[in-house]
């Protein structure tokens, strides 16, 4: 599920960035630092949508670095158990062959016995998350396509 939330982060900035474009520097550094990361608490930070507030910078002793507390709005994504998602297959590996058959080779894929449905890399599937494991910096989910209306929704191979 996606959330739009406000998060806070202390940004350390090198003195050379001080000046007129300080704010921009902070923002660009923040984006670089934060976007694409994952925290177990909030999930994956998808994008920063705005800066709420940049606090007063504090110069750190001995280094000249300045720490700014930055409050920013961002879109985070966090998967939940039971959630239904649409996802793109990035990798097919042999895990549990179920009613579909694993075919290894150049383009490993899963195929139903009649060959009508194929899941391979870049296929889009709709799945239901049945389990999540949340670490400090990683969220790990297991999903199933064994349910009504789940499964391949767009197959690049078919197209």
């Amino acid at each position: 599920m996606f959330f739009h939330i406000v998060l806070e982060r202390n940004m350390q900035l090198h003195p050379r960035h001080f000046g007129r474009s300080l704010r921009e520097n902070i923002v660009s550094k923040l984006m670089k630092d934060v976007e694409g990361t994952c925290s177990g608490r909030h999930g994956f930070v998808v994008a920063i949508t705005g800066i709420e507030n940049i606090g007063k910078g504090l110069i750190r002793d001995g280094t000249g670095f300045v720490t700014f507390p930055v409050k920013y709005q961002c879109v985070v994504f966090r998967p939940f158990k039971g959630e239904i998602l649409e996802a793109v297959v990035t990798m097919v590996n042999k895990l549990i062959p179920d009613d579909m058959e694993f075919q290894s080779g150049d383009m490993p894929n899963y195929t139903t016995s009649d060959g009508s449905v194929k899941i391979q890399k870049d296929s889009e599937v709709r799945l239901k998350i049945i389990g999540t494991r949340v670490d400090a910096t990683e969220i790990f989910c297991i999903g199933t396509i064994k349910d009504d209306f789940l499964g391949v929704i767009n197959d690049p191979a078919a197209a």
Partner: peptide, 16 residues
């Protein structure tokens, strides 16, 4: 003069 600065910046997180 500025270059040392960039040198400093090399240390991510200001780990001095």
């Amino acid at each position: 003069a500025p270059t040392p600065g960039s040198g400093w910046a090399n240390t991510p997180g200001g780990n001095y």
